[in-house]
């Protein structure tokens, strides 16, 4: 299909579904993310004409639960997440890179004007695979030409330094940030808050695009929901 010149904003939600996510209502909160994004898009036609969303979950392996798509497509059914196994960051990054490359290639073949993808990465713990395996997988993802803007979101037992090292780009005018749950805050509520931040960022990025700018806009620190801290790459040196 010829879609000459049509602008597209790809988003990916990459979410941890290791065993620990079954505790404390975290999985229910995770399952509520996609419907809340659909509701937000349904109320903003300028944005919903351009946004494509993909959902990847990961435990010992990573699965594409929703290939990059139009979330308002009337024939779409949202997948339900379920838990299993460990927390392989490497599997998540490798699957994500493969998806982005394949999706962008297809969209470009259809003559779309594809903007840089934005990835929201939510994890509730530390990786269970070896650092020597997930670090190179992350480097490959972020060093490719179509590297995404990568926004890590840590809840519950996620480590601030590990998650902080995933911010990409970590420097320059369009650097991203890390969102971390405050210690003692409720993990399920934190996941819901991360979804609020994602939606707010998506809406502001769409507005910014209408103003002739490109790139992922993050919400102002002062507007963050309770229980969440934002770390800029420089805060973690």
């Amino acid at each position: 299909m010829d879609h000459t010149g049509a602008k597209l904003l790809p988003f990916y939600l990459v979410i941890d579904v290791s065993w620990s996510m079954s505790l404390d209502g975290k999985l229910d909160a995770a399952n509520a993310i996609m419907p809340s994004i659909v509701d937000a898009l349904a109320q903003n036609p300028i944005l919903s004409d351009k946004v494509r969303f993909g959902l990847i979950d990961f435990s010992d392996t990573a699965q594409v639960r929703l290939p990059l798509c139009d979330l308002l497509d009337p024939n779409l059914t949202l997948p339900a997440l379920s838990v299993s196994g460990g927390t392989s960051f490497g599997a998540a990054f490798t699957t994500l890179k493969r998806e982005i490359e394949a999706n962008v290639a297809q969209l470009k073949a259809d003559q779309y004007v594809v903007h840089r993808p934005t990835v929201w990465f939510i994890s509730d713990g530390e990786p269970t695979d070896e650092e020597s395996s997930w670090r190179p997988a992350f480097a490959e993802l972020t060093q490719s030409k179509m590297y995404p803007n990568f926004i890590p979101c840590g809840v519950d037992k996620a480590d601030v330094n590990v998650m902080g090292s995933l911010i990409h780009p970590a420097s320059g005018p369009k650097k991203m940030a890390l969102y971390m749950m405050d210690p003692q805050f409720q993990a399920a509520k934190a996941i819901t808050a991360m979804a609020e931040i994602l939606i707010s960022s998506m809406i502001q990025s769409g507005y910014s695009l209408a103003g002739g700018n490109t790139g992922t806009i993050l919400p102002a620190k002062s507007s963050l929901p309770a229980g969440i801290q934002q770390y800029d790459p420089d805060d973690l040196l």
């Binding site: 659909v38 509701d39 349904a42 109320q43 308002l72 009337p74």
Partner: peptide, 12 residues
């Protein structure tokens, strides 16, 4: 009927 259902009906 979710919020998305009515706009989707509009599209149909």
């Amino acid at each position: 009927s979710s919020v998305a259902a009515v706009p989707a009906a509009c599209q149909l």
